[in-house]
Amino acid sequence: MVPLKRTLAGGLVLLAISSVQAAEPRNIFLQGGSQPGATACMACHGMDGMGVAPAGFPRLAGLSADYLSKQLRDFREGSRVSPVMQPLASALTSDEIRSVTTALAAMPAPTAPTVSRSQVVKSVGQSLALRGAWERNIPECVSCHGPGGAGVGSAFPPLANQPALYLAGQLNAWREGLRRNDPSDLMGHIAKAMTAEEVKAVAEYFATLAPQEAAQ
């Protein structure tokens, strides 16, 4: 017969292991948070965090942890509107946000191709991305989001290889005032100066840039 103390000790060890596993950042991405509303990120953003383009769910893998954390907090506070993400973000604890965004930032992601701003432009989307439309106070996208739309730091996320449906949706959200979570409403001013055709064109340009191999 197993002594009672040994049985209790074994149970406590298993409980401790389970607690550690539940707190692992990767598990929040795959299994969700501790609250019922905090569903698993992978359900919409894919097992690899690379997004689901046909549905317009963006890539999260490889994005800055600081940027992702800010977006989740903004969903909670209402400065970024989404009927899906707002209740989900509200159900995550601050520790869970920190954990899952750290895990996402470390996941393999494609690197944007090198794109020269001096190349001959062949489409409206490419022209806006590389040249802008300064006569309407629209700077070129790569001036803030980096060469090839690769993203810069925690303030300017990658545009390259994000779903066109997602990029267009965000530009339209800024145009309509449904998204207000960037400094001085920079993107709101830019998006409002763009036509619907330009929004679609620039979104398709960045979505179709050929990615380089995922960084391991």
Rank of each mutant, 00 (worst) to 15 (best):
P87E: 00
A112M: 03
A53K: 12
K70H: 14
G56Q: 02
V52G: 08
V81N: 15
A40K: 10
K70V: 11
S82R: 00
R76L: 06
D95R: 12
S64G: 05
A55Q: 09
F57M: 10
G62L: 01
A65C: 06
R98M: 12
A65R: 06
R76S: 09
L63I: 08
A112G: 04
P108H: 06
I97R: 01
S82W: 00
M107T: 07
D66S: 15
R73W: 12
R80Y: 08
G32E: 05
L92W: 06
D66H: 14
S82P: 03
P110E: 01
P83A: 13
V100L: 08
C44H: 06
L30T: 02
P54Q: 08
G51F: 05
F57S: 10
L63H: 14
L63D: 11
P110N: 09
L30W: 11
P58H: 10
P54K: 10
Q35S: 14
P110L: 04
M42E: 15
D48R: 02
T39Y: 14
C44D: 06
A112P: 00
P83T: 10
T39V: 15
Q86T: 15
R59Y: 03
E96K: 11
A109Y: 09
A40C: 07
L92C: 03
A106Q: 07
S64P: 06
Q35T: 13
C41F: 01
L60I: 02
F75K: 00
L72V: 07
T93S: 13
C44P: 04
E77P: 10
G62N: 04
V52Q: 13
S34M: 09
D74C: 08
S90H: 12
G62K: 06
Q71S: 10
T111Q: 14
S64N: 11
I97G: 01
A103D: 13
G56I: 00
A55Y: 09
Q71E: 11
A55I: 07
R73C: 10
T101G: 00
T39D: 13
S90E: 05
D74S: 15
D74Q: 14
G32P: 01
G46P: 03
E96M: 07
G56D: 02
G56P: 01
G46D: 08
R80Q: 07
V100G: 03
L72R: 04
P87M: 06
A40L: 02
D66W: 09
D95Y: 12
A89Y: 05
T93A: 10
Q35Y: 10
S94D: 14
Q86M: 13
E77W: 05
G62D: 00
R59F: 01
A43M: 15
G78K: 03
R73M: 13
C44L: 02
R73K: 15
R80H: 08
A105K: 05
L68T: 04
T39W: 12
A61S: 13
S99F: 10
P36N: 03
S64Q: 03
V84W: 12
S34K: 12
